[in-house]
């Protein structure tokens, strides 16, 4: 009942932000705060801004695809294209899968790591966290994946599970 008035402990802050507690600690340090036993609620909001933390899933509509795994990846890349996250326009990597159920989360995270290895997605690191964007050279490939489910062969195994 009074929980909304109480500061959060580290786990509470992590749940609120959808990040691992250790990442919350890292964000606190990089944002110039010390790590106290509890995290004030207004600081949660500050960390959300500092870390560029967004929750996309929930508002993402999955494309019509008989393979759920492929649908997740297509939906994720479509969300990036809609936000024009190409080249220098980046987003926090975890934004791509935050809010997904555990199994879908793993699918999305695996696809992101494969696409980074293939150069389709570009990973950069900043004090605010790991950032990703679509490589300009793969923008058409990303669109083909979203519209026709046409993916790099390296992802084929993922569809089969």
């Amino acid at each position: 009942m009074l929980d909304a008035l109480k500061p959060l402990d580290l786990h509470g802050a992590a749940l609120e932000l959808g990040e691992h507690p250790f990442e919350v600690v890292r964000l606190l340090v990089m944002a110039g705060h010390s790590v106290e036993p509890s995290v004030p609620r207004d600081r949660i909001a500050q960390l959300r801004v500092f870390g560029g933390i967004e929750t996309w899933w929930g508002s993402i509509e999955l494309p019509d695809d008989d393979n759920r795994r492929r649908a997740i990846v297509r939906g994720m890349i479509e969300a990036m294209l809609q936000r024009e996250l190409i080249g220098d326009r980046t987003t926090r990597r975890e934004n791509l899968y935050r809010g997904l159920p555990a199994e879908d989360y793993e699918v999305a995270a695996y696809a992101v790591s494969v696409l980074i290895q293939l150069g389709g997605l570009v990973l950069t690191r900043a004090p605010s966290g790991a950032l990703v964007s679509i490589h300009p050279d793969w923008a058409d490939g990303a669109r083909a994946l979203v519209s026709r489910g046409q993916a790099p062969p390296e992802l084929a195994g993922l569809w089969e599970g």
Binding site: L10, A14, H20, F22, V29, V35
Partner: peptide, 25 residues
């Protein structure tokens, strides 16, 4: 972590992580 309370061990781990990133900052 999700299945356990943020007890003294979590707190100590958090301070170690804090020290590490403070050194990096």
């Amino acid at each position: 972590w999700a299945g356990r309370p943020a007890g003294l061990d979590t707190r100590i781990a958090a301070k170690i992580v804090e020290g590490l990133y403070t050194a990096l900052r």
